[in-house]
Design a protein around this nucleic acid. Structure first.
Lengths: 199, 199
DNA sequence: GCCATTGCCTAACGAATGTTAGGCAAAATT
DNA sequence: AATTTTGCCTAACATTCGTTAGGCAATGGC
């Protein structure tokens, strides 16, 4: 029982931290800001977490785990490369829209990590990017995708699907699935008008 | 003469500031960090600038001006929408690669501006985005581009061409023009393989 | 009913922050 | 030659920062 309460309080702190880190940035958010939002004193946070950075680490690595797990699942389960890419984009967009604050921190505030966690984090990011590289390579083999510069393409794709994090509002007219569909369409087809003979 | 020296010292401070703001972030960069890099004392900076924020403002608004001027020129001079988009992308990439530090600050650190400058900055960003919206609308009229959701497409395009700021290194194998070409190709054509009959 | 744990508190610390005041030498101006 | 301006300095300020120490009331299991 005490254990349960403890966990839920910890989660509450992490959530509020993510919200403030997104809003003002990690460095500009003080432990006192955080405590005020929680209705407690700054010192009390140290009962649950041993430092401010531990909060950042928790958020960044939890999200990294989510993204990687999703991408690996896609690469394991789905068959066709186009289907895989669509699914990976869909899950990515869903993860961002369902965890807006934490995603923001994952995407923008990770550079405030200090070594050796910083290095570890970069490796996880790389792992995630690799999953996309695999999909593109599959697509090329299947003769579905163009023979593009993989690294370049992966970074372009990720930058595009990450950017929704800066403007997506849950009350907006598009839901996560609609956004993912549009993004997939745009990424695969581009802007240029296609002839009817084109696939 | 004094005037010239003064200006050049001011510029030197701005350049170092941009470098550190990119490296560590605006909030995490102290006036003492800045001074140390310049080989002077923190207090001495206040002879040239009246506050830390003034440095941020200078960088953000100077870059905003560059981007907007470029885009407006493109929209004035070039005729065809595809040509316009290519040119706008090219100039954007050039501006980023030629001003890496300042561009980083423009793209990521502007949110540390405080009102009323923050509001003004947002308006300038909007102005820039609008120039791209115009190009897309032109392209649609000319039946070159798909009938895409303009706001969505503009944000996707900008996020893609902005992301190079995070990985571009001058010593890399691609120069600004090659990057711009690849980006244009990707943005307009997407990933999917086109048939020969396609334009 | 006793005791340990939980979850918070107050108070304080040393360090770092942005900024100001006042001074001083060299250079530019007159 | 006298005077002003430039560009920096030292010293200090009030504030804020992350964090620690120690205490105290409520809650849990025994």
């Amino acid at each position: 029982m005490a254990e349960i309460l403890n966990i839920s309080r910890k989660e509450q702190i992490v959530n509020v931290a993510a919200k403030l880190f997104k809003q003002k940035g990690f460095v500009a958010t003080s432990m006192r800001d955080l405590a005020a939002e929680l209705g407690i004193e700054a010192a009390s946070i140290y009962y649950h977490f041993k430092s401010k950075e531990e909060l950042l680490e928790k958020i960044c690595f939890d999200m990294a785990d989510k993204f990687i797990t999703n991408a690996k699942e896609v690469n394991d389960i789905y068959f066709n490369a186009e289907e895989k890419l669509k699914m990976a984009i869909k899950l990515h967009v869903e993860t961002i829209t369902e965890n807006q604050n934490q995603s923001s921190v994952f995407l923008s505030e990770w550079r405030n990590l200090s070594e050796p966690k910083l290095k570890l984090f970069r490796q996880l990011r790389q792992q995630y990017e690799n999953q996309f590289t695999i999909i593109l390579a599959d697509g090329e083999k299947e003769d579905i995708f163009d023979d593009v510069d993989k690294k370049f393409a992966v970074l372009s794709i990720l930058s595009t699907i990450n950017f929704i994090n800066e403007w997506y509002k849950p009350e907006g007219k598009m839901n996560a699935n609609e956004i993912a569909d549009k993004l997939s369409y745009f990424i695969m087809g581009g802007l240029r008008k296609r002839l009817v003979t084109d696939r």
